[in-house]
Nucleic acid binder design. Structure first.
Lengths: 347, 347
DNA sequence: CTCAAAATGAGTTGCGCACCTCAAAACACC
DNA sequence: GGTGTTTTGAGGTGCGCAACTCATTTTGAG
């Protein structure tokens, strides 16, 4: 029993013959060049459809000679997650250069909307595609739309700007991530009742607030025995996170669960162990880094919600490339999953 | 601040000039053709290294004109996981034909070593690459090695034959998967103590026995309050799984956890609910299918360990392609992760 | 019907490489 | 030195397409 999954090897010449036109006309239709009667366009497209014709990407790529250039706009500063994304881009360098793709990384202050918007505007015209870790702000949205209008392909990375006309978002559903964290805390706490603490970077960040929303949703509806304390803001900094959490732990002896929404994990873990409650409190956080890996192995952290940074980097490149080539995007492939990482399935 | 991650756009001609030889000689070196003095080979390779030269894949692909053919050897019969893999291959058809890749699927009885070995032998010479869901058996191993020796690229899929000389394994670490299942059952059971049941297809299957091994490992060392009952064999069939489990549930009133290692999930769930213990017993199984999805949403199943079939299908194709082209494999990308799927992170 | 504008055909070039042939040069051996 | 063998050079062809030019045909407006 054998199934064959692929098509014939037609060429543009075959399509031209089928449609009863010349190669030049097929080329005009294929590239939306002007000067073709609507009716002729239809005939050509019909021939393409009828034969499920796919232009040979290798030939197309070779013929256009001009190398494609993409740029990643990333947060400046020491964010391990972003550093991992950059590292994975570096690992792709052989892959990239074999395809004559130029990828650059621009670091900027993505938390200041005007700075970010200016950085984006500055890219206009120089790149075929832009991947940006974006803040959801009107100025940024406008900058993204300008790029799109100028013909640049734009994908948002990690943090979306849904109201913009970006072509694609590469990242997770943060509400679902928060829900997952909530379900884990609730289930791992088990029969016990008590209080649950949340430490976030800032509720002004879209991804953080969405995660908190999802977390609270699950807590409220499914774990009535647990009461959620007001959100602490640690600004993703270790020291500050430690302080605010230490104070809270001092005030509440019955904290049984802890959700760390963003970074600052070092501080959170320190506050927990300094209070001598590292093993009694169920601790769920985000991202697999050297630190969270160690904490998971030690049993201080119980689970990490993770989005694979390598996957995000590669997916962003692949999506930009597919968009630039006019190829379909393999949605299933480029979708970023919410990984639950516990000690035994550490990648 | 800007980093550039990609190389120049050298061509073979540049390398030839650099090495002080002709294009023909570079070509001979690049394709391991005979008739080049060792010293010359060294000079050419040095020039390639020095410039981090990567042949333009599009040009190479175009020039060799001959389309590549791959074949997937999969289990016959209605296995939802395998059907999903086939479905994802189908979704790639545009991607495949744009690259002039022919992918075929051959169904065979992979559980009979001689049938499988014969099927593999029959492929020899007809394909550039083979992906096979393999049984670990001397006859199969020999068949794989024969294919490799004949120049065919071989990857094992889902189930490995580590003793063979296959080029790559696309699948998960099943011991780690079992450990993960064990940790989940243990943690989700919580404070309670009691017995844990295991239903497997057959302990003769390598992946199943490895999962059980990992599961028991975690149970023994970390959850002394839980005692694991002897493994039930359901042969991945619904009816049989239901019967053996129903009998066990009848004999032991204190079962608090259940690990379903393979398929037959329908039967397992039925036995559980018929006994009226769907919600009290922590039930962890494998794979996300329409059925397990429903069971997770209903709360009958608590978690599913999953290996993404779409990822496996695509990874197998990409690995075969990279092997055929002599490109490096992006190991991080092709590694299949052990996904923990609970209700809130259902993909 | 006339004439300009629009639509189309015919053809060329080049992308970088694989694959091939044939001749020339370098080398080894006696 | 001559012989045969190995190594190297030079060159050609074609893969399928993008991008372009220029001539020719068709069309529609007046």
């Amino acid at each position: 029993m054998t199934d064959t999954l692929t098509a014939t090897a037609l060429t543009l010449k075959d399509i031209a013959r089928e449609a009863g036109v010349s190669l030049a006309t097929v080329d005009r239709v294929l590239h939306n060049r002007p000067g073709v009667r609507p009716d002729t366009v239809r005939r050509v497209k019909a021939a393409i459809e009828r034969n499920a014709f796919q232009p040979h990407v290798a030939a197309a790529e070779l013929a256009r000679s001009r190398a494609r250039r993409f740029v990643f706009v990333m947060p400046a500063g020491p964010n391990p997650f972003m550093q991992q994304i950059e590292a994975y881009l570096g690992e792709m360098s052989a892959w990239l250069s074999a395809r004559r793709l130029g990828v650059e990384v621009v670091a900027t202050d993505v938390f200041d909307p005007s700075v970010l918007a200016a950085a984006l505007e500055a890219l206009s015209g120089n790149y075929d595609g832009v991947a940006v870790v974006a803040l959801d702000h009107p100025g940024v949205r406008a900058a993204i739309n300008d790029l799109v209008d100028a013909g640049t392909r734009v994908v948002t990375l990690v943090s979306d700007v849904p109201s913009s006309r970006r072509h694609h978002y590469v990242g997770i559903d943060n509400i679902a991530a928060g829900r997952t964290a909530g379900a884990l805390v609730g289930r791992l706490v088990g029969q016990r009742s008590g209080k649950v603490a949340i430490v976030a970077g800032s509720q002004g960040l879209r991804d953080h607030s969405e995660r908190i929303f999802g977390f609270n949703q699950v807590m409220a509806t499914e774990f009535p025995g647990l009461s959620v304390l007001p959100v602490l803001e640690g600004r993703d900094e270790d020291d500050r996170s430690e302080q605010v959490l230490a104070r809270l732990l001092g005030r509440h002896a019955d904290i049984v669960g802890l959700y760390n929404v963003g970074a600052g994990t070092q501080g959170v873990a320190k506050a927990l162990s300094d209070a001598g409650r590292g093993k009694q409190v169920v601790f769920v956080g985000h991202d697999v880094t050297a630190l969270t890996r160690r904490l998971l192995l030690q049993g201080v952290m119980d689970a990490a919600i993770s989005q694979n940074p390598g996957h995000e980097a590669r997916a962003a490149v692949r999506v930009l490339l597919a968009l630039a080539r006019g190829e379909p995007i393999l949605r299933e492939q480029e979708k970023i999953r919410i990984d639950i990482v516990m000690r035994d399935n550490l990648p």
